[in-house]
Design a protein around this nucleic acid. Structure first.
Lengths: 207, 207
DNA sequence: CGCATAGTTGACTACGCTCAACCCTGGTGG
DNA sequence: CCACCAGGGTTGAGCGTAGTCAACTATGCG
């Protein structure tokens, strides 16, 4: 996915785009700051946290490569969250006024943006609905099935490569690494999946 | 919120829009069906379920009044979920081809759509991040604070009216009604909130 | 070789779910 | 007017499962 159709960007916008380098822990913007720009993560990982009442901050989003950061900011005067680089990262900054008017003027850009958002809604809905299945092994199985489905069309057996550490997967699923590990072990013991190195293959057990 | 700027819809689209009445349990579309139209809930409540492998179905979304139903359908050939009316409902149907081309041709429409999606992403992210706070009373408190924030600007004390039954709130928070009840009781006992009838007021306890 | 990190396994704890009883309100009908 | 019922909400008791803390292994890197 090209980043907001960067290559086909109208010149008036493209010329205002800048790239910023972030060190781990560096703050990109802070909750309450006036919105100057809209950001896309080009490298690394940026966390969005809401620390609003002095209580323990809550992580609203961790944006990976290619993800946009706080879409609401396009429609608010101040950032509703703070953004902090998790690791060394690069972000692309689109000045808000220019981006806004470009979205208005160029349908292609607006459509790209729309597609991004729809995908995001999709993924968020999936993740949220997964949280409703309580049993860890069940949740994990459904997640794997989902991954298999998006990568290979057939509903049957499939091989999945999860390249990122299990730790991250665990967090995404709302589990601890230990619980995920146990869940995977159990699924394997029950013969619903098998693991080799990084890969997981599902055995079809459709009812 | 007007429904996709219905009043300002280009005539070519507006004339193709229809309203459908659904009885409780009636199926609006089924997973795998070719996408004919895009829907908006005008009255009632429609559930989106994914029943893909014969296993227990999983509810992906419950769309209330004013919400759009399965935005991905705009970009897929078949519906990825099934939609079932929860209660007696009315939906507005936008034929997909007309809506697609209208989104392309009319920036105003595209922008409306974009705003909808951004809001949705926002709300989904909030709900998802709430699930990460484990302690029920904490989760509830944060939720209440969020509600207070969107209704009244000041960060301090606020009065919230939750008009819908606690049962629903509980589900949205990923809790059972019993647990929610206990959580509210506890918060009240601790003096962080107080309840009168339907209303809840937060006592500011910022650190 | 030593260190850091990911992953696994074990033992214990804690918290939310389940099931059940109970209260309370509103609505209906005798 | 009271009896009855239905539904939401609350409270109680017990259980199960995921979290926590800890130890241990394996792998990769300096």
């Amino acid at each position: 996915m090209d980043l907001l159709a960067l290559d086909r960007l109208p010149a008036q916008l493209r010329d205002t785009v800048t790239v910023r380098e972030l060190q781990p822990g560096q703050i990109l913007f802070q909750q309450g700051d006036p919105v100057a720009a809209f950001f896309l993560v080009a490298a690394g990982r940026v966390k969005l946290v809401s620390d609003f009442h002095g209580e323990a901050a809550i992580t609203v989003q961790v944006a990976g490569v290619g993800e946009s950061l706080a879409e609401v900011a396009l429609f608010t005067d101040t950032y509703p969250y703070s953004a902090i680089a998790d690791v060394r990262s690069q972000v692309i900054a689109y000045p808000k006024p220019q981006l806004s008017s470009a979205l208005h003027d160029y349908t292609e850009l607006a459509e790209d943006f729309l597609v991004r958002l729809v995908r995001k809604v999709e993924s968020l809905q999936l993740r949220l609905s997964l949280r409703d299945v309580r049993a860890a092994h069940d949740r994990v199985l459904r997640y794997l099935r989902y991954l298999a489905q998006v990568e290979h069309q057939p509903g049957g057996r499939a091989m999945i490569q999860l390249n990122r550490p299990l730790k991250e997967v665990a967090i995404e699923l709302g589990l601890t690494p230990e619980t995920l590990s146990r869940a995977l072990a159990r699924l394997e013991r029950e013969g619903r999946i098998s693991r080799q190195n990084q890969g997981i293959t599902l055995r079809n057990s459709a009812a």
